[in-house]
Computed example of a mutant assay.
Amino acid sequence: MDEIAENLAGKVAIVTGAGSRPGEGVGNGRATAILLARAGARLVLADAVEAWAEETRRMIEAEGGEALTIAADVTRPEDCRRIVEAATGRWGRLDVLVNNVGIGGPKGTAEEVDPEAWAQGLLVNVTSMMLMAKYAVPAMRAAGGGSIVNIGSVAGLRGGHPHLLYPTSKGAVVNMTRAMAVHHAPDGIRVNCICPGMVYTPMVQAGGMTAAKRDARRRRSILQTEGSGWDVGAAVAFLCGGRSRWMTGAIIPVDAGATAIAGLPQEGGGG
């Protein structure tokens, strides 16, 4: 049996959206970056708000890890190129890309949504991931292979979302992952997708979250527990490491089982 590496020692990883806005808990990007650093990776932390990325860097370095930050807008090709060049310029290689940037986007159905806001939402949620891969893949090929993890959503796996943009864009991320996995397998680059459920993060908190709504979200899962950015980050870190070396094109919900059922019975109701 081939040796399976259990850590990321000597590897270089990029995490986009690596900061975390102030608030309770930790965002998916920050948790992912910290866990990758704990596994031995050196990190490029990209975020539109550099101060948020700097706090992630501080936390990594406090644990003895190594990271650098870069302020960037991943909807701009030149910024995506700069992010990759920051990794190869500092450490001479790139092994991991985590495409974590995403927004809720505009509200509304096809009848109601503003077309310009729709286009911007697709640019952020879908095109940015293509742009990052465009520049990351050649660097990974030069390093002998690598791992790309795209962050989708359970909203991209099933219907029922009140607005059109978010589930549409996340569904695109799911199938983009499958296509990229086929395209880049000959170069030893694995491409997988994590689909978080209703985890509680500072971004969710900032969007307005009453105690009652938070409890209702928790109850919409088999495990009846609340998830966090750490749960998402742990799954991402697994897909970046050697223990997942035979996995590519995988779409993995991290949702406490919410997508495993059609619905949960209401309290006091029948099954």
Rank of each mutant, 00 (worst) to 15 (best):
residue 191 V to I: 14
residue 177 T to D: 01
residue 81 R to Y: 01
residue 111 E to I: 08
residue 182 V to F: 12
residue 77 P to M: 03
residue 168 T to P: 03
residue 116 E to Q: 14
residue 129 M to A: 15
residue 137 V to W: 05
residue 90 R to N: 10
residue 150 N to V: 05
residue 144 G to T: 06
residue 116 E to T: 12
residue 76 R to Y: 00
residue 161 H to S: 13
residue 91 W to Q: 04
residue 81 R to F: 07
residue 146 G to R: 11
residue 80 C to V: 02
residue 131 L to T: 09
residue 117 A to F: 12
residue 80 C to N: 04
residue 111 E to M: 13
residue 102 G to K: 08
residue 157 L to P: 04
residue 134 K to N: 03
residue 190 R to P: 03
residue 98 V to K: 09
residue 84 V to M: 11
residue 75 T to M: 07
residue 89 G to S: 07
residue 79 D to N: 11
residue 139 A to D: 10
residue 75 T to V: 13
residue 143 A to H: 06
residue 76 R to S: 13
residue 136 A to L: 05
residue 111 E to D: 10
residue 110 A to Q: 09
residue 117 A to T: 05
residue 119 A to Q: 13
residue 127 T to C: 04
residue 159 G to R: 00
residue 71 A to T: 01
residue 145 G to I: 15
residue 181 A to Y: 11
residue 152 G to N: 09
residue 133 A to Q: 15
residue 171 G to D: 08
residue 115 P to V: 03
residue 91 W to K: 05
residue 133 A to N: 04
residue 72 A to K: 02
residue 191 V to A: 13
residue 178 R to D: 00
residue 168 T to N: 02
residue 127 T to G: 07
residue 170 K to H: 07
residue 132 M to G: 03
residue 105 G to Q: 05
residue 172 A to S: 14
residue 136 A to F: 10
residue 96 V to L: 07
residue 119 A to E: 14
residue 142 A to W: 00
residue 189 I to Q: 09
residue 113 V to H: 07
residue 142 A to P: 00
residue 139 A to Y: 07
residue 180 M to E: 06
residue 190 R to G: 04
residue 97 L to Y: 02
residue 170 K to N: 01
residue 128 S to D: 00
residue 164 L to E: 14
residue 72 A to L: 06
residue 154 V to Y: 08
residue 157 L to Q: 10
residue 160 G to Y: 01
residue 137 V to R: 10
residue 165 L to F: 12
residue 82 R to N: 13
residue 125 N to A: 11
residue 78 E to T: 13
residue 148 I to S: 15
residue 169 S to F: 09
residue 71 A to W: 01
residue 87 A to F: 10
residue 85 E to W: 00
residue 127 T to D: 12
residue 140 M to P: 08
residue 83 I to P: 05
residue 127 T to R: 15
residue 160 G to R: 08
residue 77 P to Y: 03
residue 94 L to D: 07
residue 167 P to V: 11
residue 159 G to W: 07
residue 96 V to A: 05
residue 124 V to C: 09
residue 92 G to A: 01
residue 134 K to T: 07
residue 77 P to R: 10
residue 77 P to E: 09
residue 146 G to K: 13
residue 117 A to P: 02
residue 75 T to Y: 03
residue 183 H to L: 09
residue 182 V to N: 00
residue 187 D to C: 00
residue 166 Y to H: 06
residue 94 L to I: 02
residue 180 M to Q: 15
residue 92 G to F: 06
residue 161 H to T: 02
residue 127 T to S: 12
residue 118 W to G: 08
residue 99 N to P: 08
residue 145 G to L: 15
residue 127 T to W: 14
residue 83 I to N: 09
residue 154 V to P: 04
residue 136 A to I: 11
residue 75 T to G: 11
residue 113 V to W: 10
residue 105 G to T: 10
residue 87 A to P: 03
residue 105 G to P: 12
residue 74 V to M: 09
residue 156 G to Q: 12
residue 91 W to D: 04
residue 74 V to K: 00
residue 134 K to I: 03
residue 116 E to H: 05
residue 192 N to G: 03
residue 112 E to R: 13
residue 82 R to K: 15
residue 140 M to V: 13
residue 179 A to Q: 09
residue 142 A to C: 00
